[in-house]
């Protein structure tokens, strides 16, 4: 396979994690909005959301960091 295709596929796999993180974020934002709409457990929802969203973003961030640094330093002579 061409390197370019491989790179694209790799980007895709990486983007799964981002999709997860973003969808979790959207989900929690939705839940907070709903909680606000029905005036029910707003603060609890907010705090839990903040916590959860951070974790998912950090995880995605770490994975991306690895990905990009591996590619960045791949050609470096040891």
């Amino acid at each position: 396979m061409k390197d370019r295709t491989i790179y694209l596929i790799q980007l895709m796999t990486l983007s799964f994690n981002w999709i997860l993180a973003i969808s979790v974020t959207l989900w929690f934002i939705n839940l907070v909005v709903v909680a606000n709409q029905v005036k029910d457990t707003q603060t609890a929802s907010l705090w839990i959301s903040i916590l959860a969203i951070t974790i998912f973003w950090i995880l995605a961030g770490v994975l991306s960091y690895v990905f990009f640094s591996l590619h960045k330093y791949a050609d470096e002579v040891k």
Binding site: Q10, V66, F67, S69, L70, H71, K72, Y73, A74, E76, V77, K78
Partner: peptide, 10 residues
């Protein structure tokens, strides 16, 4: 493998 080649920086 994400292009891992075992360079120190990697």
């Amino acid at each position: 493998a994400w292009g891992y080649k075992g360079t120190p920086k990697q």
